[in-house]
């Protein structure tokens, strides 16, 4: 594989709340390669969205990035000033939002909202070229050029999300973050929107991070999956490996809980609930729910280790097969 465009290195993010520090992300590291599609999955509160938002530095209010680095082809995003970061947004890292229904300004025409992006980054083309450029963007995501003259309320949910994708690729960014981009849409539209996202991403050669908990969607769309649990990356491997030979007990149970069309059997969940991030359990955060937990699990946090080529697991069960200590 080629050089990574994005390197996330031991990212720690805490939320300051009245009840205390919520340790939302605890040392997440991964690489994202050019043109790659990486999926981040996990339960609600596992830190997947927080990680994605940290990359574009959109964390608000009580969230603090305590430690770590986010390198976007040589630039440490966490070291940039607010205004420098503003210039990076959508130009080098863009985002397809979660709430497609309300992500567009209701009182502005689509044309103006796309124009805003060019203007904010000092890349406003000449008047004569702008309309053509916007029309081209819209056709690329499967919309008619006339959509440019419409207001958001005149579009369907799927069309709005396509507009959002068109905006996300307007400045040809290197990385596109998609935080559950289709959770507000029905399955048919979901599929169309994901195909559109996939197509433009391939044309652009941009890398995509898809955040979500829809394993079916992940299986269809991404190349690699990172499984998150209680603010940690517990497994990072290709889609095939995750689905065929999951290694971490949490991933195994996660895959085991996906209903099977061929076999008729009882629906299986993972017993217990996710731990409180205010006061996480000692050692491996999954050990209270893990059927295979043994002594070291309660004591040390297992680091992410490569157990097979480009297959990374954070679990004490795989201690013997250690090769490297850094994710790739």
């Amino acid at each position: 594989m080629n050089a990574p465009v994005l390197q996330v290195d031991s990212l720690h993010i805490h939320y300051q709340t009245l009840a205390g520090m919520v340790k939302a992300v605890n040392g997440v590291s991964f690489n994202l390669y050019k043109g790659e599609r990486l999926g981040l999955v996990g339960e609600s509160g596992s830190g997947k969205s927080t990680t994605a938002l940290a990359i574009i530095r959109m964390l608000e209010g009580p969230a603090r990035i305590i430690d770590g680095a986010i390198n976007l082809s040589g630039t440490n995003l966490l070291a940039l000033s607010d205004d420098e970061m503003r210039a990076v947004r959508f130009d080098r890292v863009s985002m397809v939002p979660q709430g497609a229904m309300n992500s567009l300004n209701p009182v502005m025409r689509i044309r103006e909202q796309i124009r805003d992006i060019y203007e904010a980054h000092g890349k406003l083309p000449k008047r004569s070229e702008l309309d053509g450029k916007i029309a081209h963007l819209l056709t690329r995501v499967g919309l008619k050029p006339e959509v440019a003259g419409m207001f958001p309320h005149e579009l369907s949910g799927g069309m709005k999300q396509r507009v959002c994708i068109a905006m996300a690729i307007a400045l040809q960014p290197q990385v596109i973050l998609a935080d559950e981009p289709t959770s507000a849409l029905d399955v048919v539209v979901q599929r169309q929107v994901m195909e559109t996202l996939g197509n433009v991403q391939q044309e652009l050669g941009a890398a995509v991070i898809l955040v979500g908990h829809d394993m079916g969607l992940m299986a269809q769309f991404v190349d690699r999956i990172g499984v998150m649990y209680a603010g940690r990356l517990v497994e990072l491997a290709s889609v095939e490996q995750i689905f065929k030979a999951p290694q971490h007990p949490y991933t195994q149970q996660l895959i085991g809980s996906i209903p099977n069309l061929e076999q008729k059997k009882l629906f299986k969940g993972i017993p217990g609930t996710a731990p409180s991030l205010l006061d996480p359990p000692s050692g491996c955060p999954f050990h209270p729910r893990c059927s295979e937990a043994f002594e070291p699990c309660t004591l040390d946090v297992p680091p992410l280790r490569e157990t097979a080529p480009s297959c990374w697991v954070a679990c004490h069960l795989y201690e013997k097969v250690v090769s490297h200590d850094h994710p790739a």
Binding site: I56, M58, R86, A87, V88, R89, F90, D91, S94, M95, P97, Q98, G99, M101, N102, S103, L104, N105, P106, V107, M108, D116, I117, E119, A120, H121, C164, M167
Partner: peptide, 28 residues
């Protein structure tokens, strides 16, 4: 609203977000 979040993610300047995404809607 979500469109304010997206406006910020788009890298728009604060003045633009305040006047045209915020005030413009709040004024109605």
């Amino acid at each position: 609203e979500d469109f304010i979040t997206l406006a910020k993610a788009k890298g728009l300047r604060e003045k633009r977000i305040f006047l045209w995404y915020g005030l413009r809607n709040g004024l109605l």
